[in-house]
Amino acid sequence: MAKRIDISDLSIYYGAFKAVEDVTMSVPPRSVTAFIGPSGCGKSTVLRTLNRMHEVIPGARVEGKVLLDGQDLYGSGVDPVAVRRTIGMVFQRPNPFPTMTIRDNVVAGLRLNGVRDKKRLDEITEQSLRGANLWNEVKDRLDKPGAGLSGGQQQRLCIARAIAVSPEVLLMDEPCSALDPISTLAIEDLINDLKTRFTIVIVTHNMQQAARVSDQTAFFNLAATGKPGKLVEMDSTSTIFNNPSLKATEDYISGRFG
């Protein structure tokens, strides 16, 4: 498992509006890459193009290439549904399926894609919940609704659901922004565990979080409102936070930003 992602000359449009311009970067496997930058700079948009989720919005399209271990995700004949099975995603707000139990939530991706073998589903439920550090908290109430958990537990349930389909890459769009500090810590610990198995890309507004969990950091910025967002600088996290090569990066990181 775990594959590398190479993005080249990626521009993203919503209708006529160019949201992101000319992003080129590489995400190495089995590592955590953080996207930071001000609101509206396109970091979430770039993240969503990595598993073709941005296409859900009418009028969205991309130019450029996104390669997963050399295979173009936007090549002709590539099915977005297959891409999303390979590249999982965790969202900003925890979104367990309200009609399903905890168990059904975890294996939703498998069951909705036709896996019926109950023994296998039970195994994967346990593995995934252990993988998301949630097993001990919910093992006695797997048949209770997932919506009854706390916010932090719900988010870990969503992570369990994402890893249950055994993706190569895990995308996380501000996974802790709706959580309290203790739940945030739990998720950050989890990210550290998960990076031994998955390639992880995380969008965060929390600079300390980027510094704590990531190996590489990419800083996005936009010239002005209405202008497209750009990748300003990408490097190892310690370089970005201690010795960035551009002044814009340093200004943003030290909080001296507009």
């Binding site: 367990p96 309200p98 909705l112």
Partner: peptide
């Protein structure tokens, strides 16, 4: 959010509607 959560698991649209949206 729920539709997106389902798409992100690689569930096709028709299945998302019949197994997630309509039951909800």
């Amino acid at each position: 959010d729920l539709r997106e959560a389902s798409y992100a698991l690689g569930v096709p649209k028709w299945k998302t509607i019949s197994a997630v949206v309509l039951p909800t």
